[in-house]
Each structure stands twice: as structure tokens, then as C-alpha cells.
Design a protein around this nucleic acid. Structure first.
Lengths: 98, 98
DNA sequence: GCATGCTACCTTGCGTTACAAGGTAGCATG
DNA sequence: CATGCTACCTTGTAACGCAAGGTAGCATGC
């Protein structure tokens, strides 16, 4: 999940509702109660930063973007994800019989 | 994790220490404190069954195997895993830029 | 200009999962 | 028969995602 968030923020400044929409478009259902704590945590870890921007219709929004540190972190997550999928593939390869 | 366990038990009767070895061989590190509760849970859900078998050197072992219900469950997990990897791929595909 | 509603932010409590640590007991070995 | 190894299992802890609920800005309609 974190991997997906950080990945989406890699080259775009997005606020929470947009994030949810992007994830939904990829068939990943998440609620805002999941994202807000995660975004705050990542921001406190200096992996994300944000700036306020006014909305045309409603209250202002927090647009998040990746810091340099966050970019490094993304590369680690990317590697970790590759390791996991590779491991699962290894497990599954031995058991094609079902 | 559950997916890996169920997958490994699909065509072999294995006991816990062997399971840990197979997972380790695929670069997945798990402790027995993780597996025992999981195996008991799956067995209570009638997804796994076990039989005792004596060891040549030490106490008897519980050899687990998949039930029919467990096989159905494995197919669900397999589909779920494919969905997730597909979703992550979609997310990543839009962000090759870093 | 005030009430209503929508949007966006955030918090709290719950269930689940994986781990570390510790505990019991069978069996073999010297 | 004492020691050690193996195998089983439990307990407490931390992290994660979700559901539900809560605050507050801004727009809209009367």
C-alpha cells in the first residue's frame, strides 16, 4: 500500500481524494481513514512534503509530493516488492499441479 | 504468507520445520511462532488436515495437507494475488519516470 | 445572512497479522 | 538418568487497514 502511495506521488502532486481515485482506477480500494495516518507518518519521516492549495469549490487541499529522501525510499520499496513477487513465483513454480 | 503456505501444502505433506525451510529457500523468512497459529487456524477452518507421523530422531510430527476446501481456497488466493500484482503493475506503469 | 450540504482534513477503536520470547514435552545419547 | 535437541504451542507487542465518527472551510439557496 505504502509502495503504491509513494509510487503515485513520485511524479505528481496529488491530494488525498485524488489518490483514492487513482488507486480505485487500479482496482485498489482504500478509505481515507487509511491514507491520512499514512501520509502524516511519511511526512513526519521527511519522505513526503506538502503545500496547501485552494480549491475552486470547497476547502483548501494538501497536495503531497515526494522528497529526495522519499525517492530513495521508493527505490527500496521497489526492490522489496520485486523480491517478494520473485519469492512467491518461486513458491508457486514448484506447485503448478493443482 | 498464507498464500505461500497453502501453496506449498497443495501437493505435499509437510510439517512445520520443513515449511520454514522451503520458505527460506525462496527468500521468505518466517518464524515458527508465525506458522503454528496460522496452521491451527487453517485447520480449524477445515482448509488443512494433518496426521501424526513418527520421526526417526525425535518427537512425532504433524504433517499437514490440503483439503478439498483448501484447494478451492488456494484458487481464490491465487486469483487475489494476481489481482494485487496486476494492480501494482498498473500503478507502477504510470510512474516509470524516477 | 443564515441554514444546509458538501468537501477535506483528522482521530479513535477494532480486528488481523507477523514476530520475539518463552514454555512444555517427547525422544535420543552418553 | 541427566542433558540436549527437536517439535509443538502460547503470550505479549507492534504495525496495518478499516469503519465510524468528528471538526471545519466553503458554497448554495432561501
Amino acid at each position: 500500500m505504502e509502495f503504491c502511495i509513494v509510487s503515485l506521488l513520485a511524479d505528481e502532486k496529488i491530494y488525498t481524494a485524488e489518490l483514492i481515485d487513482r488507486l480505485k482506477a487500479a482496482n485498489l480500494i482504500v478509505t481515507d481513514g487509511t491514507l491520512y495516518p499514512m501520509l502524516n507518518r511519511l511526512q513526519k519521516g521527511e519522505l513526503l512534503e506538502y503545500h496547501w492549495a485552494e480549491s475552486e469549490s470547497g476547502p483548501p487541499r494538501k497536495y503531497y509530493s515526494l522528497t529526495d529522501k522519499g525517492l530513495t525510499y521508493l527505490n527500496e520499496l521497489d526492490k522489496a516488492w520485486q523480491d517478494i513477487t520473485s519469492s512467491v513465483q518461486t513458491i508457486r513454480r514448484g506447485n503448478q499441479s493443482e
